[in-house]
Amino acid sequence: MTQPPGLNLRGAVDLTALARPQSVPAAAPGDGGAGPAGGPLGSGVVVDVDEAGFEAVVQQSLTVPVVIDLWAEWCGPCKQLSPVLERLAEEYGGRWLLAKVDVDANPRIAQAFQAQSIPMVVALLKGQPVPLFTGAVPEQQARQVIDELLKVAAQNGVTGTVAVGDADAEQEPQPAEEPPLPPLHAAAAEAFERGDYEAAAASFEQALAESPADAEAKAGLAQARLFARVASVPQAVAAGLAETAASDPGNVDAGLAVADRDLFGGHVEDAFARLVELVRRTAGDERAAVRTRLLELFEVVGVDDPRVARARAALASALF
């Protein structure tokens, strides 16, 4: 992570409008969200933030580093990254605050940070944004970035902490414990955390062999395969494939690789449109391979997502 001198990023991202009080109602007490605009964020090291509570985040960043996780419910990589960030926030014991922002519900915040794809993670120090990373990264890489952020924060006098402890537990009811994951799902989750996507896929494949109707295993397998494919292609090679796909729209290998990266980066509709067009341009085994990949990406996004429904209709038109 690079640090511009004195964190002089004003002008790169305009946060001033969001830092003013809004007329949007504040989050209800106990829902984990931010308080009223200009008010306290509440207790805990992980909070959900909306546009009404954004000023409180800016104020908090004067004394405590704030890490902002820009995510959405439909984003598969977000679902892998967010639990990693939440676990790290707990582990660091209040040395930084994790503020989670649903970009679909809060588009002005996403626009302010010029978010082109998600997950996107940025920090606020003394009210100024510091880019951290885009896309799902392994836990070790996220930890290294946050350690560097804390060094930068200390250099700029931002060394406060978020209040944690028994007092917080007394103020907020504790959620009921979630049932443990099935063994193969748990093994896949652990493999995801250490970046071993092939092992994660193998665990989900075994789960499906034992229970073919396991929808979560099917979606998890699609995600694991996507992550493995993206991780296996170096950035320089990916750039070359993007150029090939642009100059030769019928190139199946390039089109599949670029669609993977589009989806991984949150550009869902771009990925779907690219593959539907490839279906139109191909025939035989190539068309079958493209269709199979598109159906797999539907699983990553979620079969109930409206963009999947639209893409299914487009696929049917392309096929028939």
Results as ranks from 00 to 15, higher is better:
9 L>T: 15
13 V>N: 13
15 L>N: 02
16 T>Q: 15
19 A>K: 00
20 R>T: 15
42 G>E: 09
44 G>C: 14
47 V>D: 09
47 V>L: 13
55 E>S: 15
56 A>S: 14
59 Q>F: 13
71 W>I: 08
72 A>C: 02
74 W>F: 06
75 C>T: 04
78 C>V: 04
79 K>G: 00
85 L>Q: 02
86 E>H: 08
93 G>V: 10
97 L>T: 10
98 L>F: 01
101 V>N: 02
101 V>M: 00
107 P>H: 09
117 S>T: 06
120 M>W: 11
123 A>V: 09
125 L>W: 13
125 L>H: 14
127 G>A: 08
131 P>C: 09
135 G>I: 08
143 R>M: 13
144 Q>V: 04
146 I>K: 07
148 E>D: 15
150 L>V: 09
153 A>I: 04
155 Q>Y: 03
157 G>W: 09
162 V>M: 11
167 A>D: 13
171 Q>G: 05
173 P>A: 10
175 P>H: 01
183 P>H: 06
191 A>I: 02
191 A>D: 03
196 D>W: 02
199 A>K: 02
215 A>I: 03
215 A>F: 10
217 A>L: 00
217 A>T: 01
218 K>Y: 00
220 G>Q: 01
223 Q>N: 10
232 S>I: 02
240 G>K: 00
246 A>I: 14
249 P>M: 02
249 P>A: 03
251 N>K: 09
255 G>W: 02
255 G>Y: 06
259 A>R: 03
264 F>S: 03
270 D>P: 15
278 L>W: 00
280 R>W: 09
280 R>Y: 13
281 R>I: 11
284 G>L: 06
293 R>K: 06
294 L>C: 00
299 E>S: 00
302 G>L: 01
307 R>F: 04
314 A>G: 01
316 A>P: 03
316 A>Q: 03
318 A>V: 09
318 A>Y: 04
